[in-house]
Design a protein around this nucleic acid. Structure first.
Length: 447
DNA sequence: CTGGGGATGGGGCCC
DNA sequence: CGGGCCCCATCCCCA
């Protein structure tokens, strides 16, 4: 027989012990501020502490000391409170830093909740946008009541501990009405305010966005936590070795701001007085959309939507021929044209320009390219490397418009010269949330 | 190991 | 607002 309240009471007791510094055997120093905790609780909650404590597990007589300089004490407080209560006090203000810290501490539950929080915030319907954008110039999102809104929603659930497992899409969907409107309006304001901050920053140094441009290159499975700085950034970075992932980005941002004499004190917290004045100094568009995952801002919501794919890993455009997936239709088209349709009128071997008359298309697996007649005669296919996909690739020698996976009976070899256009590009927009479901022009689903 | 070039991915912006 | 084009940075493979 399971007594459901036990877990809650146990956690409550541990939290009391923490507050009264009873049996605490772990000291955590965050930017100089000290926190107390229990090794077993921290071990069970964080991958980082698991690693740390398992290394120092032999010296159990001495209290463990962990020092962090990569997030603020306030942020760690939010996380520690969550560890000991199951309640995560997320706000539009702190979500980015909490997510960064959770990533650092390898606390995937918090990470997922933050992601869900942010993604829900992005689902801004027009009504709310109009309403809150008009408010945003005057209002502040520092209302202390707001985090409690999020908490209360979570508390409404039967088990407070379970309530942190929000990443469950169904749960998120079920709760959408109850909190996404809140978070989206909150986020609208955050986005606008931060956008204004960014505008002020960027406005001082036109073109700096380009110089600071980062290749986010987040392929599927690559998390933004694994962000790699560019060569220039690596060379110029003065960040601590422990500052990994987006934390280093945050730090770089700070460094950039320092370099460029950016004033962070915009007075947003106290209201609107300073904001229009500052913005008025720069003749820039009023609206920018701020990416919740990074510092990037864009003019149009559609561009933000597109940009977000580099964070979410969403690749809704699969190549029907090789299965490779792309974030954009145009990338799929480019890929298809160059890889599967030999779109480039260049001899692959001698790199000379070829025409339909002076060259021919060579098919190798699913890959097609052109060779001039001379190179074709010399190569005789021997020097052309095998295509890994060759064994399962359809090959056409007819050039008919037909389904690309229809393997022709008379086909004997994977290689050979072919006529034009055996593959047709079929544009599909795949919804990743429903595995296997393929639909024409399904709207991208931001997870 | 290194440089070159193709492939890919992301941003700006026009239509 | 989506599609598409252009440009550029980065990755990655290969000589």
């Amino acid at each position: 027989m399971e007594i459901s309240s036990h877990q809650f009471h146990l956690l409550e007791q541990l939290n009391e012990q923490r507050k009264q510094d009873l049996f605490c055997d772990c000291d955590i120093l965050v930017e100089g501020k000290g926190f107390k905790g229990h090794r077993n609780v921290l071990f069970a909650s964080s991958g980082y502490f698991k690693m740390l404590l398992s290394q120092s597990s032999k010296e159990t007589s001495q209290p463990t000391v962990a020092t962090f300089e990569v997030f603020s004490p306030e942020t760690f407080m939010v996380i520690l409170d969550f560890v000991y209560s199951g309640i995560l006090a997320l706000t539009g203000q702190n979500v980015i830093e909490v997510m960064s810290a959770a990533s650092y501490l390898q606390m995937t539950d918090i990470l997922n909740v933050c992601k869900t929080f942010i993604k829900s915030s992005l689902d801004i319907n027009e009504k709310e946008k109009d309403r809150y954008l008009s408010l945003s110039a005057k209002s502040t999102n520092n209302d202390p009541a707001r985090p409690s809104l999020y908490r209360s929603r979570r508390k409404a659930k039967s088990n407070p501990r379970r309530s942190c497992s929000l990443p469950d899409e169904k749960a998120a969907a079920a709760n959408e009405n109850s909190w996404s409107s809140y978070s989206s309006c909150l986020s609208s304001q955050v986005i606008l305010q931060r956008a204004e901050t960014q505008l002020s920053k960027r406005g001082r140094k036109p073109g700096s966005a380009r110089r600071r441009r980062r290749h986010l290159g987040l392929a599927q499975g690559r998390d933004f936590a694994q962000y790699k700085p560019t060569k220039a950034e690596r060379a110029g970075s003065t960040g601590s070795a422990s500052d990994t992932g987006h934390l280093s980005r945050v730090r770089e941002e700070a460094e950039f701001d320092a370099e460029n004499d950016v004033d962070h004190d915009y007075g947003y917290r106290d209201g609107s007085d300073t904001v229009p004045k500052r913005l008025a100094d720069y003749d820039l568009p009023r609206m920018r959309f701020k990416c919740p995952f990074c510092t990037h801002t864009v003019k149009r919501r559609a561009d933000l939507k597109r940009h977000l794919r580099c964070h979410t890993g969403e690749r809704p455009y699969p190549c029907d021929v090789c299965g490779k997936r792309f974030t954009r239709l145009e990338h799929l088209r480019n890929h298809f044209q160059t890889i599967h349709q030999a779109g480039k009128l260049i001899c692959r071997k001698c790199k000379r320009h070829v025409t339909e008359l002076t060259g021919c298309v060579v098919q190798q697996g699913t890959r097609r390219y052109r060779l001039c007649h001379k190179c074709l005669a010399e190569a005789n296919f021997d020097s052309i490397p095998e295509d890994l996909d060759a064994e399962h690739s359809p090959v056409s020698s007819t050039g008919n418009k037909r389904p690309k996976w229809a393997l022709e009976e008379e086909q004997k070899s994977d290689e050979g010269t072919v006529e034009e256009e055996p593959y047709n590009l079929v544009v599909r927009h795949v919804n990743d949330d429903v595995p296997g479901e393929v639909d024409e022009k399904v709207k991208p689903n931001l997870r």
